[in-house]
Design a protein around this nucleic acid. Structure first.
Lengths: 350, 350
DNA sequence: CTGAAAGCGCTTACAG
DNA sequence: CTGAAAGCGCTTACAG
């Protein structure tokens, strides 16, 4: 069933059918009604590709997550508890507004290609890009195509420096810096002086922010940076676990450990528990993100809450908005984070 | 940049460009090389919609999950720990094979419409449908369009009865019945005689299977069905929590509770813990699915492992296979489940 | 082996 | 207000 068929049945031309479908004003009510009736009777659905080819929207947005890890093919991206809720929320929000979502994750350069294609081939009206790494080049290419694009967890300064800010672009992130300051100062207030860190991926905006805030807060309170307690966790459970084991074997421990995300905090706690290091009695652990599991393990994890759901939702609303607007816009939203105190921290025992 | 441009630059016709792109045999190596060079130089990407319109594939598969709950808009589907890993695996597997995945979840009849459209409008080459409820009608419509379709967690008997089995169709599920029998017999061996159940949604194939197996196994061992301990949990945390509270308030408890999925087991454990009922000392709890959390809470949950990852992967491979094949096929795979014994069960105390 | 032409199903100036 | 026609960017018989 094509628009031609509808046209015949309704006794009008394809042009008119099209006008009705697209809700153009210059169609008399009677004609519109007649056409609509035929459309409904036959459950007619205009072919989306034909529409897209002729210049209409595809009613699809893209969601592209860039893997944290450098190695291809290893740990899948969603294993990271951070992405699952994003996917959830994005799909839900977009669906509720009549949009499909097209998903592709990026591990390898080949995958990058796929993301670009999704834009170039106009498979989507706009896209959301999560994760930052070395993809600024990709972002530029996207932006050059004037495709509506929302970046999540992206360094605004970098965007500005690249002068990408005069297009259909928006960036959404969270106050990771402030959240980390809160976490570290909480530990300091508890009396900790030797605070280690399990770092996130420094390829990532949030990874860098969380590390810098850690460093600066120690400085501000005249605490030395404990080199031996600065571990490279890369946001991944495996590395975090490995690094924590190394730390334990090496002998001396800090009295508290700030983990740049909850996944790493869980891994660290596992390692500690296996070695008989009791949390929080012997060592306090604090996380970041407040994923579901955080409040369900023992001890319940003290962590910094990141409003992922709101961020994801905002990202979708933003792309849709950008799809509507003619003029180039650039906007920025930063969501607040806050410390959630549970059971995994206590004053250091002397 | 369109195929026309490439043609000019390469000094051939669009036909030839198309033949090269589609890897047709009747193109001399020299010509092919020449065209390919131009394509690469200009990063040319054929417009996917135009290709699709002209009858080619879209290189996209659909993933449609049908919400367990009847009410619209309430708990989002992915909150169910069962779906997140499916989405993961499907996206990963499809991406690795060069396919995009288009996602839409179904809460309301309107959403069903969207799923149908995705097929009708040929947005996708094939689709995966998860969850069963009252969507047999939808399945029939899909099948009538001869679209490759893979059903996950679907009653084969129902398909056969509907005579849908002569098309590009496959169904993938798991031996929920056998898994449940194992679980219940394990409890019986431990000495339990009063075994309650938190039922899953009876709209669901797995929900029905798990319930039936429970009932049959009790019968087989000459145990009466303890009506008071048969709770309607619908696979959802909230209902499970509510029902468990009711059970507790009502006074008498079974000595063991079989929960048709882990999510409900967690909710029940929470309710018990709040009321001071100790698991497993006073009451054994057993789950189903073996989601991530199962091995991380205290006590670690004894549960039946469902190979979701393998199932999801198989589903993708199957759709892709169906997309390749000309002739109608119908096939069926059932994945094994197995009991994973951890800490949440023990013999009843007298 | 290869090009001209028709067709896929829509939209949108254009003319009336 | 409305239809005929061109165009979106590809593929594929068809003819040579």
């Amino acid at each position: 069933m094509r628009s031609e068929d509808i046209a015949k049945l309704a006794g009008v031309s394809r042009s008119t059918v099209s006008r009705v479908i697209n809700n153009y004003p210059n169609v008399p009510e009677a004609t519109r009604a007649k056409v609509l009736r035929v459309i409904e009777q036959h459950h007619y659905e205009p072919n989306s590709f034909a529409r897209a080819l002729a210049g209409k929207r595809t009613d699809t947005i893209g969601l592209f997550a860039i893997s944290m890890t450098e190695k291809e093919d290893t740990s899948r991206i969603y294993q990271n508890s951070y992405f699952a809720p994003i996917v959830d929320m994005v799909v839900d929000t977009a669906n509720a507004r009549g949009f499909y979502v097209l998903i592709h994750t990026v591990y390898s350069p080949g995958d990058f290609q796929k993301v670009k294609q999704a834009f170039q081939q106009k498979r989507i009206d706009g896209g959301i890009l999560v994760g930052t790494q070395k993809d600024i080049e990709l972002v530029r290419e996207m932006v050059d195509q004037e495709a509506p694009l929302v970046l999540v967890d992206y360094d605004i300064a970098e965007i500005m420096a690249e002068r990408l800010n005069k297009n259909h672009l928006a960036v959404i992130n969270s106050n990771d810096y402030e959240g980390t300051v809160q976490a570290i100062e909480y530990l300091i207030e508890l009396g900790h002086r030797e605070i280690g860190i399990l770092k996130g991926s420094m390829n990532t905006f949030s990874g860098r922010e969380r590390y810098l805030a850690y460093e600066h807060t120690l400085q501000k309170h005249n605490l030395p940076l404990p080199e031996a307690f600065v571990l490279e966790g890369e946001f991944l459970k495996e590395s975090a676990y490995r690094e924590t084991r190394k730390l334990i074997e090496q002998g001396t421990l800090p009295t508290a450990l700030f983990c740049a995300n909850d996944d790493m905090a869980f891994a660290a706690m596992e390692a500690f528990s296996e070695s008989g290091v009791r949390v929080p009695e012997q060592l306090s652990v604090i996380g970041f993100d407040d994923v579901q599991l955080a409040s369900r393990i023992t001890p319940k994890l003290t962590t910094v809450r990141l409003p992922v759901d709101e961020m994801a939702k905002a990202a979708v609303l933003k792309v849709l908005e950008l799809c509507e607007t003619e003029q180039p816009t650039f906007s920025t939203v930063s969501f607040p984070t806050r410390l959630v105190i549970r059971d995994s921290c206590q004053p250091p025992t002397e």
